[in-house]
Design a protein around this nucleic acid. Structure first.
Lengths: 110, 110
DNA sequence: TTGACATACCTAGAAATACTATGTATAATG
DNA sequence: CATTATACATAGTATTTCTAGGTATGTCAA
């Protein structure tokens, strides 16, 4: 009924690729696992985002044969992408920290 | 250039009203203060959200004269709204926890 | 061997959310 | 008296994510 709120798709995608190269389908499965199924990202969400990241030079794609004989499209995080990841992580920390401050009634300084 | 990502407007609005009744303009100023100016919510964002919350019965509005003589529209969190706030808070904790799990490379269970 | 299911990629259109821009009006201030 | 801050509001736009659909290949049970 209500749309699931996954707004930080880019951050999550970049983060997944930080450890190893992955292909789209794998990223979706991996994300569900790492988030204990809190995130159930849709293909219609991820693929356009990956294409965008590629256009911006944050990831590079290459095709590789799977052991099954099937071809997969792997994504590799570039140096530029690593930099973007660090920035997005910092933005997330700032953002989530601010939400928590507000929930606690404000970082009453002092 | 890039839009600021304030996605949890409802949660933030409900949270602000948890302590005391507030009017819209005050909420924007208060939110900026409590978040150390991380959140600079726009009136075009808040007012429609407040109207929605009112329609759902989460807040009740009443008009009151300010000491300045000017009329303000105060919002009060209803019992139903308090319940909604607790749910949104729980959702936020689940969501932010999951993001952090992914950033750390997954809640590898152990 | 064939039909179902999981894997694997992709895009178009709809829905949700927040922003920009604008309008109105009053109080305070220089 | 003009400008700025306060205070509320809406219309239209932009962005993000979802739904829904399409294509194709590998696996496995009946």
């Amino acid at each position: 009924m209500k749309k699931q709120a996954i707004e930080h798709t880019r951050l999550l995608a970049l983060s997944l690729l930080a450890g190893e190269d992955m292909y789209g389908y794998q990223m979706i499965v991996e994300l569900a696992r790492r988030s204990n199924h809190t995130f159930d990202m849709k293909e219609g969400t991820l693929y356009p985002v990956l294409h965008g990241l590629e256009q911006e030079g944050f990831v590079e794609a290459y095709r590789k044969q799977a052991p099954t004989g099937r071809e997969r499209k792997y994504y590799h995080l570039t140096r530029k992408g690593e930099h973007a990841l660090r920035e997005e992580e910092a933005a997330w920390k700032r953002y989530s920290g601010a939400v928590n401050d507000v929930l606690r009634g404000g970082a009453e300084a002092v």
